[in-house]
Every structure is written in C-alpha cells, then in structure tokens.
Design a protein around this nucleic acid. Structure first.
Lengths: 221, 221, 221, 221
DNA sequence: CATGAATGAGCATTCATTCAT
DNA sequence: GATGAATGAATGCTCATTCAT
C-alpha cells in the first residue's frame, strides 16, 4: 500500500481536526442567533459545520456547553482586542479615545460577534453561568475601561463632571442594542423610507455623547 | 324564590370569564419573559394564571397566538398612552418634552410591559408578524413623535441642527436596552459594588442627549 | 304574570323534549358516518341537533352509548319494516319476492339508514356489542328470511337446488357494500365517465341472481 | 485485522434498515385494521414492529402518511399481480377466467391485504387522497379488466348481452364486502350454527354470476 | 475519529365529560 | 332542563443524546 497518498490525507485530516472546534463554534453562533437557542436543532449546527450529528458530540458534551463555548469564545476574543486597542491610546484626547471606541463597535457590529449580544440577552436568564461570564468578562472590564477614560478627561478639564456610571451606560447600551436589533427585527424586516444607517449612527451617537460631556469651550463650533 | 343567592355566583363566573384573557396575558408575559417563548410550557402559563392547561386553549388557539396577543396587548397599550401624553405637551420646551419622555420610559421600565421588549428581540426573527407589528405600531410612530419633537426644537432655535434619525435612536435605544437588561442579565445577577440605578440612568441619559443637541447658549451652565 | 304566553311555550318545550332523542340520533348518525366515530366531536353532534354539548349528555350518558343507540334505532327500524313487507308476500313467486327485496334495498340505500352499515363495519371490532346486535338483529333474521324464500322456491320447483347460505350472501353482500360505498369513496369522489347508477344496479343485481338460481325453463327468454 | 466479526454486524444493521419500512407497513396495517386509524396509537404500531416511537417517524413523517403508504403498498402490489394473472389467460373461456378471478380473490382474502379494503371504506372520506388512489389504481383498472373479460365473452357468443357495469359490480362488490366483514364483525364474533365458509362462498358466488350471464345452452346442466 | 440509526423524555394540543349557574 | 366554562387524560410528534458500526 503506497503511503504517498496517505500522508497528505493525514495532513488534511489533521488540519480539519484542529479547525473543527472553530467551525463548530461559527456554525453554532450562526444557528443559535438565527433561531434562538431552544429552537436550534443540534443537527442543523452540525450540518452547517459540514459534519454529522454525532461528531458535534465528540467536541462538545451537550448543546448547552456548546452555547457557553460560543459565548466565551466570541466575546472573550473581541473584548480582549478592544482593551488592548484602548490601552494603546491611553493618553490620547477624549475625542481620539471616543474614535477608538467607535471603531471597535463598528468592527463588532460588522462581525458575527455582534450576535453574541443577542444570545446573552436571550439566554442569560436560563443559564446563569452566562450572566456571570458576561458580567465579569465584558461589562466589568468594559465599564472600567470607559469609566477610566471619562475620569481622566474630567481630571484634565476636557470633560465636565458627570455621573460616570450613567454616561458609561449611555455610551455602551445603544451599541449593544444596535447589535441586538441587527439580529432580531433588523434581520427579517427592512427599515422603511429614510432608512437607518448603523455605521452612521455609531459615529453620530459617540459624537453626541462626547458633546454632551465635553466642557463648553471644547465643543465643536 | 329569592334570586339573591344566584346572582353573585353568576356575577363571579361572569367576572372570571371577562378577566381570564387579562390574567392569561399577564401570566404568559411573565413566563415567556422568564423562560423564553420556546422553553415556556403552556401548562406553566395556565398554572400561573390559576387555570388548567385546557382553559388556556379556550381563550387562545395556540401558544404562538398567545405570544402575539401578549405583545399586541402590552405594547399597543403603552405606546398609545405615551403618544397621548406627548401630544398634550405639543408646544412645550424641549426640556419639558424630554421630561415627559423620561417619565414614560420610567413607567414602562417599572411595568411588566418592559418585558415585551425582550420578547420582541427574542422572537421577532421566528415570527415575522411580530417584527411587522413592532415596526408599524411602535418604532414608526415612536420615531415620528420624537423626530417631530426634535425638528420643532430646531425650528425654534432651541436645538442645534442634527441628524434627526441618529438622535432619535440615541434617545430610544438605550431605553429599550435597559428594559431588555432588566429581564435578562439583570434578573439573575445583582450588579456589584457601585450598583447601577435605572431610574437615575433614565434621567441622566435624557439629560445627556438634551445637552448634546441643545444650542450652546441654552445649555445649563 | 300572564300565563297566556307561557302555555304555548311549555307546549313547544314539551314537543322539543320529546323530539330531542330523535334529533340527536339523526345528527349523530350524520356526523358519525361523515367523520367516523372516533374523529367525531360530540360537540358537533350537539350543534347539528341544535343543542349544546351539555344537553347531549342529558340524553345519552356517553358518546359510545350514543353510537349504540344510533345503530339500534336505525337498523332495528328498517329490518322490522322489511320483515313485515316480505311476510306480507309470503306465498308469492320468487320473482315477486325478489322485487320486494330490491324495493327494500332501494329504500334503505336512499335513506340515512344506509350509513349504519358503514358504522357497523367501522366500529364493530371496537365495540363487540355492536357486532352481537348486528348479527342477532340483522344478519340472522335477514338470512333466515331470504333463506326461507329461496327454499320455498326450490320446493316448488321454481329455483334450482343450491347452497342456500352462499346465495343468501350473494344477494345481501353487494347491497351492503353499495351502502358502504355511498358513504365512503362515493361521498367524496364522483365516479368518472360511464357513471355508475345505484338504482339500476340494485335491480340488475337482483335479476342476475334470480337468473342464476332459476330453473332453466323459468328463465326470461 | 480480521473483518470477519464486523461484517455480519453491519450486514444485520443494513438488513434492518432495509427491512424496516416493510415491517412498519405490516405492523401499521395490522393495527389500523384492528383499531381503526383514528384510535390507533402510533406507539402501538411502532411497538408491534419492534421499534420505538421515534423510529417510526424516521421512516414516515406522520401517521397519515403512514396510512397512505400502507394502502399504496398493499393494494398496488396485489392489483398489479392480479392484472398480470388475468392478462396471461387473455383468450381463455369465460369459465376459466372466472376461475382465475376466484383464485385471486381467495388469495387477497387470505392475505393481510384484505384489510386494506376496510381501511379504504373507513378512511376514504377523511383522506380524499385515498379515494383518488383507490379509484384510479384499483376500481378503474379492475373494472376495465373484468369489463373486457365480459365483453369478449359476449362477442364470442358465450355470454348473454348484459349491462356490463352492473355485472362487473356484481362480481366485485361481494368480494370486497367479504374482506371488510372478515376484519369487522367477522373478527370479533363467530358466525353461529351453519357457519359461513368464505372459500366456499367465493367459488359459489363466481359460479352463480357466471351462470347468470351465460347463454342458456352453455349453462352447466 | 466519524457516522447516523435508534431511543424516549418532553410538550402542544384536543376533546369527552362534569357541574355550577 | 339547558348551558358552556373548566378540566385533565390521552396522544402525535420532536429532538438531544447515545452507541454500534
């Protein structure tokens, strides 16, 4: 038996085997966001990843664990990237930092990761693990990051004194909502007439908040 | 023959029959928001309304129709009330109108109706009817109302020229998100330390946006 | 209170009360034949008789008892009538007796009683009472009647010697089958092209059998 | 590595998978005929085929489709076989052809296929598909076959001129009725005293009709 | 490792029957 | 008597999970 043909095959097999978890997570995210966790059939996840039902269970012991893995994977990754980005501009002007923020949201909104927010809102209550993870790995660090950003701006006299908590949420909540909307109503209905432009909204909203918190003489004329 | 004893009995029966739909809708909203539509058992809805499984189906032909009825009932009611409220202050100052808005959101947030927003985000994609209803009965009239409010402010020189669309969403989205959060992560996790106060946030956020769109010299010093 | 208006009302009520059982049986026969016993809803029977669900149970203690009453009523009645008719022509020629038979079948076929045969074939196995009733009240006396008719013809030299049992069934079975067909396939499909005429068939079939059992020289030329 | 132990296992599995549909159809026919379609529990069908509820639905998407498959399978098969048989004797004497007919009916009566006639009478009205199938696949070709047989007999001067339609039905209807009876009254009641012998009846009836339609001088003395 | 046939717990829905009015 | 609201047992069907191949 010639091994010449087997070796590349093994290589491909090897590659597949390593790629599997990612393929499965991607497929699962897609299906879960589309149909909701409870109404998603594990067979469809498997099919969309190009494997059979049985194979899915080789990698994740249950549908629930798969869900948690999806959330951990996609959210952890994006948040870490965002934190690094902000850290790199630590000393920048508020306007610059807000720009970095807008960029990050734009990226998240455009990526599949945006769907994870829908999953969290949908499933958090059924799976407290998810709430805990979301709180400790996303909300907490995210809020701290933005809070520090705002506080530094205040200290430097570029931003007005404010309720840091509230403003932080004023920045974050509409962005999360935008992601949710994209995968909920937005996915099955076209907004009518004067259609809504997410990319524009992200910039506009960040700018609006910036204006709202800036000291008067730093406002753009 | 004294009918005195029969009358109240009939009255009670009658009252129940009329009250049933509302009791069922309330129970359904509760359960659907808590567990998600797909994982809610119709028997639990019935039980929480104090009736048996079968009775539920005497009033709503299917779980799905029950869901739609819940959304139509709670959302329609609140939106109508809000529209009337705003209409009554048609000529008021932007600040006053924003105050009316904040009050309305506060009421919705505190009422069970807040859960409907979670239902919509959760189920819209599976039941396009819901998306259509939400768009035509909530988003459309709500946006128009706020849009007009903003435009009038601009015309009178109290508000800066702005992208009406974006600002409208900047006002609405975080409020919707707040409702969602209340019934998702918020329902099973206590926010830690510097705890988040929704009532405060509603006021702060509305004020922030107001500041962001006001002409400079009308800003509170 | 004037009793003048009450008296006729009582009379009507009385009349209704007495007519009820028949109205219910007629409605039940109709519905049972149409939908099959198991798929018939007792509410529909009641509705078709113009009363409410509850009233039905005032007259018959269960759906099953209603079924048995239907069969007993319609079948007993027709068979008794047929027996009398035949008895009245006891001494007639075979040809005349066969004519009486054809007339009886024609009447049964045209009346709602035809449906009872479907009910029996459909439900006999689930309710052995029905089989027993059918056997003892219909098959037994009917066969005996026809058997005697044939035997007398043989004794008088008008009919050939034959297997009485078989011929009896040759007479009866297609007639029963005709009734069944009327309420089964015949009720939801039109026979195509050279359409089948039941009235004609009844005559033809009886004639065919008569010819088959007649002594050669009594055959119509 | 010896594959000797793996092969039979796969073979068994394979064999089961191929055999399943037939096993299920056989079990379904049995149960449906016994209890009636509506009162048959799909779980019992599965159990009688030796599999679990879920497996049934792996092969047939619903109880209704299973019913149609049963009818199509059993009836189609038998009718095709009968047609071939008759075709093979195309030029034979009427008496021979009638013998072939009697044989076919005897086979059908003895086989489980006889139950299908009960199913058709029972369910046709609830499922018009079944009526259509029965008409086009059984009644139509069957009648044509017998009609041609009779016509050829007339042309050759062996049979009297007759109403072909009626005689065709005189041949068929009692046979169908016999099948019905076997699974209805016959299945739960023993005919008393001078017991009825189906095999004898089939021969006798065919002979009776043959005698009824033969030209006088060809009648058996 | 991968497959997909088989399983059976779980749930929506129906409807005969009851009973307060 | 008559009504129809309420009940809950019964059953079709789905789908996560297992395991023999």
């Amino acid at each position: 038996m010639p091994t010449g043909s087997a070796e590349p095959a093994r290589a491909v097999r090897q590659r597949r085997k390593e790629a599997r978890p990612h393929e499965l997570l991607a497929a699962a995210l897609e299906v879960f966001v589309e149909k909701g966790f409870a109404t998603s059939r594990s067979e469809e996840v498997a099919a969309r990843a190009g494997v059979s039902k049985g194979t899915l269970y080789l990698y994740y012991p249950s549908k629930e664990e798969l869900l948690k893995a999806v959330i951990r994977h996609y959210l952890g990754e994006e948040v870490r990237a965002g934190a690094l980005e902000v850290a790199r501009h630590e000393d920048a002007e508020p306007a610059v930092l807000f720009g970095v923020l807008a960029d990050w949201w734009q990226r998240v909104y455009d990526s599949p990761a945006s769907g994870v927010f829908k999953l969290i809102m949908t499933e958090a209550r059924n799976f407290p693990d998810i709430s805990a993870f979301y709180l400790s790995e996303v909300i907490e660090p995210g809020s701290r990051l933005i809070g520090q950003m705002l506080e530094r701006g205040v200290q430097r006299g570029r931003l007005r004194p404010m309720n840091i908590e509230s403003v932080t949420h004023s920045v974050i909540l509409p962005m999360v909502m935008l992601c949710l909307h994209k995968h909920a109503v937005g996915a099955c209905m076209q907004l009518p007439e004067r259609s809504f432009e997410p990319a524009q909204f992200i910039r506009d909203h960040i700018a609006l908040v910036l204006r709202g918190v800036s000291v008067d003489d730093s406002l753009p004329k």
